[in-house]
Protein backbone atom coordinates (compact mmCIF):
# COMPACT_ATOMS: atom_id res chain seq x y z
CA UNK A 1 0.00 0.00 0.00
CA UNK A 2 3.09 2.15 -0.04
CA UNK A 3 3.65 2.25 -3.75
CA UNK A 4 0.63 4.31 -4.91
CA UNK A 5 1.66 7.08 -2.50
CA UNK A 6 5.08 7.12 -4.06
CA UNK A 7 3.45 7.52 -7.42
CA UNK A 8 1.24 10.43 -6.48
CA UNK A 9 3.86 12.44 -4.62
CA UNK A 10 7.09 11.90 -6.42
CA UNK A 11 8.18 15.46 -6.95
CA UNK A 12 7.49 16.90 -3.48
CA UNK A 13 10.55 15.77 -1.55
CA UNK A 14 12.75 16.51 -4.51
CA UNK A 15 11.59 20.13 -4.85
CA UNK A 16 11.90 20.69 -1.11
CA UNK A 17 15.47 19.62 -1.27
CA UNK A 18 16.30 21.89 -4.18
CA UNK A 19 14.78 24.93 -2.53
CA UNK A 20 16.43 24.47 0.86
CA UNK A 21 19.88 23.80 -0.50
CA UNK A 22 22.00 26.84 -1.09
CA UNK A 23 24.98 26.50 -3.41
CA UNK A 24 27.35 27.44 -0.61
CA UNK A 25 26.57 24.46 1.63
CA UNK A 26 28.51 21.40 0.62
CA UNK A 27 26.05 18.96 -0.90
CA UNK A 28 25.95 15.50 0.55
CA UNK A 29 27.20 13.07 -2.03
CA UNK A 30 24.68 10.40 -3.02
CA UNK A 31 26.47 7.14 -3.75
CA UNK A 32 24.58 4.91 -6.19
CA UNK A 33 25.64 1.41 -7.14
CA UNK A 34 25.23 0.49 -10.81
CA UNK A 35 25.24 -3.27 -11.28
CA UNK A 36 25.36 -5.21 -14.52
CA UNK A 37 26.14 -8.72 -15.71
CA UNK A 38 28.13 -7.49 -18.71
CA UNK A 39 31.91 -7.96 -18.56
CA UNK A 40 34.25 -5.04 -19.08
CA UNK A 41 34.95 -5.56 -22.78
CA UNK A 42 31.30 -5.93 -23.77
CA UNK A 43 29.71 -2.91 -25.39
CA UNK A 44 27.01 -2.37 -22.76
CA UNK A 45 29.69 -2.17 -20.06
CA UNK A 46 31.84 0.15 -22.17
CA UNK A 47 28.92 2.53 -22.74
CA UNK A 48 27.99 2.35 -19.06
CA UNK A 49 31.47 3.51 -18.06
CA UNK A 50 30.91 6.62 -20.17
CA UNK A 51 27.45 7.19 -18.68
CA UNK A 52 28.72 6.89 -15.12
CA UNK A 53 31.64 9.25 -15.75
CA UNK A 54 29.38 11.79 -17.46
CA UNK A 55 26.84 11.76 -14.63
CA UNK A 56 29.47 12.07 -11.89
CA UNK A 57 31.05 14.96 -13.77
CA UNK A 58 27.84 16.77 -14.64
CA UNK A 59 26.32 16.53 -11.16
CA UNK A 60 29.30 18.46 -9.79
CA UNK A 61 29.89 15.92 -7.04
CA UNK A 62 26.34 15.58 -5.76
CA UNK A 63 26.06 12.14 -7.37
CA UNK A 64 28.63 9.39 -7.30
CA UNK A 65 27.66 6.43 -9.43
CA UNK A 66 29.86 3.37 -8.95
CA UNK A 67 29.75 0.82 -11.72
CA UNK A 68 30.20 -2.88 -10.93
CA UNK A 69 30.41 -5.07 -14.02
CA UNK A 70 30.64 -8.82 -14.53
CA UNK A 71 27.91 -9.55 -11.98
CA UNK A 72 30.19 -9.07 -8.98
CA UNK A 73 27.23 -7.49 -7.20
CA UNK A 74 23.64 -8.81 -7.36
CA UNK A 75 22.17 -8.91 -10.87
CA UNK A 76 19.10 -10.52 -12.46
CA UNK A 77 16.36 -11.47 -10.04
CA UNK A 78 18.53 -10.52 -7.07
CA UNK A 79 19.43 -7.15 -8.55
CA UNK A 80 15.74 -6.49 -9.19
CA UNK A 81 14.96 -7.36 -5.60
CA UNK A 82 17.55 -4.81 -4.43
CA UNK A 83 15.53 -2.20 -6.30
CA UNK A 84 12.17 -3.38 -5.03
CA UNK A 85 13.44 -3.31 -1.45
CA UNK A 86 14.81 0.21 -1.92
CA UNK A 87 18.60 0.01 -2.20
CA UNK A 88 20.55 2.90 -3.71
CA UNK A 89 20.86 0.84 -6.81
CA UNK A 90 20.61 0.93 -10.59
CA UNK A 91 20.36 -2.37 -12.43
CA UNK A 92 21.19 -2.85 -16.10
CA UNK A 93 19.95 -6.30 -17.02
CA UNK A 94 17.53 -8.18 -19.29
CA UNK A 95 14.02 -6.81 -19.80
CA UNK A 96 12.78 -10.30 -18.85
CA UNK A 97 13.59 -9.54 -15.20
CA UNK A 98 10.91 -6.83 -15.33
CA UNK A 99 8.69 -9.58 -16.70
CA UNK A 100 8.88 -11.32 -13.32
CA UNK A 101 6.77 -8.41 -12.01
CA UNK A 102 4.73 -7.31 -15.01
CA UNK A 103 4.63 -10.41 -17.24
CA UNK A 104 3.55 -8.46 -20.33
CA UNK A 105 7.14 -7.20 -20.73
CA UNK A 106 7.97 -10.72 -21.87
CA UNK A 107 5.26 -10.50 -24.54
CA UNK A 108 6.70 -7.24 -25.82
CA UNK A 109 10.09 -8.90 -26.18
CA UNK A 110 8.52 -12.14 -27.40
CA UNK A 111 9.63 -14.19 -30.41
CA UNK A 112 9.52 -12.94 -34.04
CA UNK A 113 8.09 -9.47 -33.49
CA UNK A 114 10.71 -7.11 -34.88
CA UNK A 115 12.66 -6.96 -38.12
CA UNK A 116 15.05 -4.32 -36.79
CA UNK A 117 15.96 -2.35 -33.67
CA UNK A 118 13.96 0.73 -34.74
CA UNK A 119 10.68 -1.16 -34.71
CA UNK A 120 11.41 -2.21 -31.16
CA UNK A 121 12.35 1.33 -30.08
CA UNK A 122 9.09 2.62 -31.52
CA UNK A 123 7.27 -0.09 -29.56
CA UNK A 124 8.76 0.97 -26.22
CA UNK A 125 7.36 4.48 -26.82
CA UNK A 126 3.80 3.29 -27.38
CA UNK A 127 1.12 3.86 -24.72
CA UNK A 128 0.92 0.06 -24.40
CA UNK A 129 4.47 -0.18 -23.04
CA UNK A 130 4.37 3.15 -21.21
CA UNK A 131 1.43 1.84 -19.21
CA UNK A 132 3.50 -1.16 -18.18
CA UNK A 133 6.22 1.21 -16.97
CA UNK A 134 3.66 3.07 -14.90
CA UNK A 135 2.26 -0.14 -13.49
CA UNK A 136 5.62 -1.56 -12.42
CA UNK A 137 6.49 1.78 -10.81
CA UNK A 138 3.23 2.05 -8.94
CA UNK A 139 2.98 -1.57 -7.83
CA UNK A 140 6.60 -2.50 -7.14
CA UNK A 141 8.59 0.72 -6.84
CA UNK A 142 10.67 -0.05 -9.93
CA UNK A 143 11.27 3.01 -12.10
CA UNK A 144 12.23 2.04 -15.64
CA UNK A 145 14.74 4.54 -17.02
CA UNK A 146 15.22 2.77 -20.33
CA UNK A 147 14.14 -0.37 -22.15
CA UNK A 148 16.39 0.25 -25.12
CA UNK A 149 19.90 -1.00 -24.33
CA UNK A 150 20.08 -3.59 -27.11
CA UNK A 151 22.84 -6.13 -27.58
CA UNK A 152 21.68 -7.87 -30.72
CA UNK A 153 19.11 -10.27 -32.12
CA UNK A 154 19.46 -13.92 -31.27
CA UNK A 155 19.76 -16.41 -34.10
CA UNK A 156 20.66 -20.06 -34.58
CA UNK A 157 24.20 -21.49 -34.63
CA UNK A 158 23.95 -25.03 -35.92
CA UNK A 159 25.73 -27.75 -37.84
CA UNK A 160 23.20 -27.65 -40.71
CA UNK A 161 21.65 -24.52 -42.23
CA UNK A 162 18.12 -23.57 -41.18
CA UNK A 163 15.81 -21.68 -43.50
CA UNK A 164 12.34 -22.93 -42.54
CA UNK A 165 10.75 -24.52 -39.44
CA UNK A 166 11.06 -28.05 -40.93
CA UNK A 167 14.86 -27.68 -40.78
CA UNK A 168 14.68 -27.49 -36.97
CA UNK A 169 13.00 -30.90 -36.61
CA UNK A 170 14.80 -33.10 -34.12
CA UNK A 171 17.61 -30.63 -33.45
CA UNK A 172 18.70 -30.37 -29.82
CA UNK A 173 19.15 -26.67 -29.13
CA UNK A 174 20.49 -25.28 -25.88
CA UNK A 175 18.28 -22.74 -24.13
CA UNK A 176 18.74 -20.83 -20.86
CA UNK A 177 16.47 -21.92 -18.00
CA UNK A 178 13.49 -19.92 -19.17
CA UNK A 179 9.99 -20.85 -20.23
CA UNK A 180 9.94 -18.30 -23.03
CA UNK A 181 13.05 -19.73 -24.69
CA UNK A 182 11.85 -23.29 -24.21
CA UNK A 183 8.48 -22.59 -25.84
CA UNK A 184 10.04 -20.53 -28.62
CA UNK A 185 12.48 -23.25 -29.68
CA UNK A 186 9.71 -25.83 -29.41
CA UNK A 187 7.41 -23.75 -31.57
CA UNK A 188 10.18 -23.27 -34.13
CA UNK A 189 10.40 -27.05 -34.39
CA UNK A 190 13.47 -27.85 -32.28
CA UNK A 191 14.15 -29.72 -29.03
CA UNK A 192 15.04 -27.27 -26.28
CA UNK A 193 17.74 -28.52 -23.88
CA UNK A 194 18.35 -26.38 -20.81
CA UNK A 195 21.97 -26.26 -19.71
CA UNK A 196 24.44 -23.66 -18.45
CA UNK A 197 26.11 -21.83 -21.33
CA UNK A 198 29.72 -22.78 -20.46
CA UNK A 199 28.84 -26.48 -20.89
CA UNK A 200 27.63 -26.03 -24.46
CA UNK A 201 30.99 -26.09 -26.19
CA UNK A 202 31.75 -29.63 -25.01
CA UNK A 203 28.13 -30.70 -25.43
CA UNK A 204 28.18 -29.86 -29.14
CA UNK A 205 31.40 -31.80 -29.63
CA UNK A 206 29.90 -34.85 -27.94
CA UNK A 207 26.79 -34.57 -30.06
CA UNK A 208 24.48 -33.95 -27.08
CA UNK A 209 23.59 -30.65 -28.73
CA UNK A 210 23.07 -29.88 -32.42
CA UNK A 211 23.30 -26.19 -31.91
CA UNK A 212 22.78 -23.17 -29.74
CA UNK A 213 21.05 -19.87 -30.15
CA UNK A 214 22.43 -16.46 -29.41
CA UNK A 215 23.73 -13.18 -30.74
CA UNK A 216 26.53 -12.76 -33.22
CA UNK A 217 28.68 -11.37 -30.39
CA UNK A 218 28.22 -14.53 -28.34
CA UNK A 219 28.95 -16.62 -31.42
CA UNK A 220 32.29 -14.95 -31.98
CA UNK A 221 33.13 -14.24 -28.33
CA UNK A 222 32.73 -17.84 -27.15
CA UNK A 223 34.41 -19.34 -30.23
CA UNK A 224 31.44 -21.52 -31.07
CA UNK A 225 32.39 -21.11 -34.76
CA UNK A 226 35.03 -23.76 -34.07
CA UNK A 227 32.15 -26.19 -33.49
CA UNK A 228 29.27 -25.09 -35.71
CA UNK A 229 29.66 -23.17 -38.93
CA UNK A 230 26.10 -22.28 -39.97
CA UNK A 231 24.49 -19.07 -38.70
CA UNK A 232 20.84 -18.81 -39.67
CA UNK A 233 19.39 -15.34 -39.14
CA UNK A 234 16.16 -16.36 -37.45
CA UNK A 235 16.30 -13.19 -35.30
CA UNK A 236 13.87 -15.08 -33.07
CA UNK A 237 14.43 -13.06 -29.93
CA UNK A 238 15.84 -9.65 -29.18
CA UNK A 239 18.63 -9.30 -26.63
CA UNK A 240 17.86 -6.11 -24.75
CA UNK A 241 18.53 -4.69 -21.29
CA UNK A 242 16.46 -2.38 -19.17
CA UNK A 243 17.87 0.29 -16.89
CA UNK A 244 15.92 0.28 -13.62
CA UNK A 245 16.15 2.31 -10.43
CA UNK A 246 14.28 2.20 -7.16
CA UNK A 247 11.53 4.83 -6.83
CA UNK A 248 12.65 5.30 -3.21
CA UNK A 249 16.03 6.43 -4.50
CA UNK A 250 14.55 8.34 -7.46
CA UNK A 251 12.36 10.39 -5.17
CA UNK A 252 15.35 11.33 -3.03
CA UNK A 253 17.05 12.90 -6.06
CA UNK A 254 16.66 16.54 -7.00
CA UNK A 255 14.87 17.34 -10.23
CA UNK A 256 18.16 18.38 -11.73
CA UNK A 257 19.76 15.07 -10.76
CA UNK A 258 16.84 13.21 -12.25
CA UNK A 259 17.30 15.08 -15.50
CA UNK A 260 21.02 14.32 -15.55
CA UNK A 261 20.36 10.63 -15.02
CA UNK A 262 17.67 10.43 -17.68
CA UNK A 263 19.63 12.33 -20.29
CA UNK A 264 22.93 10.58 -19.77
CA UNK A 265 21.39 7.11 -19.83
CA UNK A 266 19.65 8.14 -23.05
CA UNK A 267 22.99 9.22 -24.55
CA UNK A 268 24.56 5.98 -23.36
CA UNK A 269 21.77 4.01 -25.00
CA UNK A 270 22.52 5.73 -28.32
CA UNK A 271 26.25 5.12 -27.95
CA UNK A 272 25.61 1.47 -27.10
CA UNK A 273 23.35 1.11 -30.14
CA UNK A 274 25.78 2.73 -32.59
CA UNK A 275 28.71 0.70 -31.38
CA UNK A 276 26.71 -2.52 -31.30
CA UNK A 277 25.60 -2.10 -34.92
CA UNK A 278 29.18 -1.33 -35.93
CA UNK A 279 30.59 -4.28 -33.98
CA UNK A 280 28.01 -6.70 -35.39
CA UNK A 281 29.16 -5.83 -38.88
CA UNK A 282 32.78 -6.41 -37.92
CA UNK A 283 31.98 -9.69 -36.17
CA UNK A 284 30.12 -10.94 -39.22
CA UNK A 285 33.22 -10.34 -41.33
CA UNK A 286 35.45 -12.09 -38.80
CA UNK A 287 33.06 -15.04 -38.66
CA UNK A 288 33.00 -15.32 -42.43
CA UNK A 289 36.78 -15.38 -42.34
CA UNK A 290 36.50 -18.34 -39.94
CA UNK A 291 34.40 -20.19 -42.50
CA UNK A 292 30.95 -19.41 -41.12
CA UNK A 293 28.08 -19.22 -43.61
CA UNK A 294 25.15 -16.87 -42.98
CA UNK A 295 21.64 -17.83 -44.04
CA UNK A 296 18.49 -15.76 -44.52
CA UNK A 297 15.35 -17.52 -43.28
CA UNK A 298 11.65 -17.57 -44.13
CA UNK A 299 10.65 -15.17 -41.33
CA UNK A 300 6.92 -15.34 -42.06
CA UNK A 301 6.87 -19.13 -41.72
CA UNK A 302 8.69 -18.92 -38.40
CA UNK A 303 6.50 -16.10 -37.15
CA UNK A 304 3.42 -18.16 -37.91
CA UNK A 305 4.90 -21.19 -36.19
CA UNK A 306 5.74 -19.17 -33.11
CA UNK A 307 2.32 -17.54 -32.68
CA UNK A 308 1.14 -20.25 -30.22
CA UNK A 309 3.89 -19.21 -27.79
CA UNK A 310 1.81 -16.12 -27.00
CA UNK A 311 -1.03 -18.25 -25.64
CA UNK A 312 1.15 -20.35 -23.34
CA UNK A 313 1.56 -17.86 -20.53
CA UNK A 314 -1.40 -17.65 -18.21
CA UNK A 315 -0.12 -14.50 -16.56
CA UNK A 316 0.12 -12.50 -19.79
CA UNK A 317 -2.84 -10.22 -20.33
CA UNK A 318 -5.31 -11.95 -22.68
CA UNK A 319 -5.12 -10.39 -26.11
CA UNK A 320 -1.68 -8.88 -25.49
CA UNK A 321 -0.33 -10.45 -28.69
CA UNK A 322 -3.07 -8.83 -30.76
CA UNK A 323 -2.44 -5.45 -29.10
CA UNK A 324 1.26 -5.71 -29.85
CA UNK A 325 0.59 -6.66 -33.47
CA UNK A 326 -1.81 -3.73 -33.79
CA UNK A 327 0.84 -1.33 -32.48
CA UNK A 328 3.38 -2.89 -34.84
CA UNK A 329 1.07 -2.28 -37.79
CA UNK A 330 0.88 1.39 -36.85
CA UNK A 331 4.66 1.54 -36.46
CA UNK A 332 5.26 -0.04 -39.85
CA UNK A 333 2.69 2.25 -41.50
CA UNK A 334 4.66 5.32 -40.37
Amino acid sequence: KEAPVAETTPATPATEETTTETPATPVEKKVITVSTKFVDNEQTAISLVKVVDAINERSGGSLELQLFTNGVLPIGKDGMEQIVQGSDWILVDGVNFLGDYVPDYNAVTGPFLYKNFDEYFAMTKTPLVQEMNQKIEADYGIKVLSLDWVFGFRSMMTKTPITKPEDMKGLNIRVPTSQLYTYTIEAMGGNPVAMPYPDTYAAIQQGVLDGIEGSIMTYYGTKQYENVKEYSLTNHLLGVSAVSISTKLWDKLTEEEQTILTEEFEKGMQDNLDETVKAEGEMAELLKAEGVTFHEVDSDAFQKAAAPVYTKFENWTPGIYESILAELEKIKAN
Binding site: D78, Q85, Q179
Partner: peptide
Protein backbone atom coordinates in the same frame (compact mmCIF):
# COMPACT_ATOMS: atom_id res chain seq x y z
CA UNK B 1 11.93 -8.91 6.75
CA UNK B 2 13.59 -10.29 3.65
CA UNK B 3 11.13 -13.15 3.45
CA UNK B 4 8.20 -10.75 3.68
CA UNK B 5 9.57 -8.46 0.99
CA UNK B 6 10.87 -11.16 -1.30
CA UNK B 7 9.43 -10.91 -4.80
CA UNK B 8 11.56 -13.45 -6.66
CA UNK B 9 10.05 -16.37 -8.52
CA UNK B 10 12.04 -19.33 -9.81
CA UNK B 11 12.92 -19.51 -13.50
CA UNK B 12 11.38 -22.80 -14.55
CA UNK B 13 8.53 -23.51 -12.15
CA UNK B 14 7.81 -19.84 -11.46
Amino acid sequence: LYFQGSTKVTAALE
